[in-house]
């Protein structure tokens, strides 16, 4: 009780007046004496007596009881090693990810296919659709089919038909 004050309490201590500090030290000495088995002074303030009685009751109650199984579990949790079962999934995932990245990096890049030979939106071909042409879907279907057919023929002619 009368030991050095924790660093965390520095700020609180700075707000305590010297008189309060002296009172606290006196009370701490009384509690220390009581815990050492010395009898309590005969005359003291009622508040101080209540505090000493509370300290005495806490001392008599002893340390908090804990069931043996619970105590074992707490100790195991505190000191047990990291179970291997939790490590292996991470190791496996890391190794697999590294292997996959390696394979992808070594894979030869696929030859780039010209834009007109791949499936793509028809926006560039058709352009903005005016309100007056809103229902003129037949003309757009003709245009789209002709354009894609030309691209497909190029694929077939160069032997890349699928």
């Amino acid at each position: 009780m009368s030991g050095p004050v924790d660093d965390d309490d520095d700020e609180l201590e700075a707000k305590v007046s010297p008189r309060e500090q002296a009172e606290a030290a006196r009370l701490a000495r009384l509690v220390d004496d009581l815990l050492d088995g010395a009898p309590a002074p005969a005359a003291m303030e009622s508040e101080t007596r209540l505090l000493l009685q509370a300290a005495q009751r806490i001392r008599d109650a002893g340390p908090p009881a804990m069931a043996p199984a619970r105590r074992e579990a707490v100790l195991d949790a505190a000191f047990a090693r990291w179970p291997r079962a939790r490590v292996w999934p991470w190791v496996a995932a890391t190794v697999l990810a590294a292997a996959a990245a390696f394979v992808l990096a070594l894979r030869p890049p696929s030859p780039r296919v010209a834009d007109e030979l791949v499936s793509r939106p028809a926006d560039r071909l058709v352009g903005r659709i005016a309100a007056a042409d809103s229902a003129a879907a037949r003309a757009r279907a003709d245009l789209l089919y002709a354009d894609r057919l030309a691209g497909y023929r190029r694929i077939v002619l160069r032997g890349g038909s699928r």
Binding site: V118, S119, A141, L144, G151, Y152, I155, G160, S161, R162
Partner: peptide, 20 residues
């Protein structure tokens, strides 16, 4: 990568055009 133009796509486009 976008898939190359294919026969199924051309066939579907031809059908759409025919229905119009």
């Amino acid at each position: 990568e976008r898939p190359p133009l294919s026969q199924p796509l051309l066939a579907a486009l031809a059908q759409a055009r025919s229905y119009h």
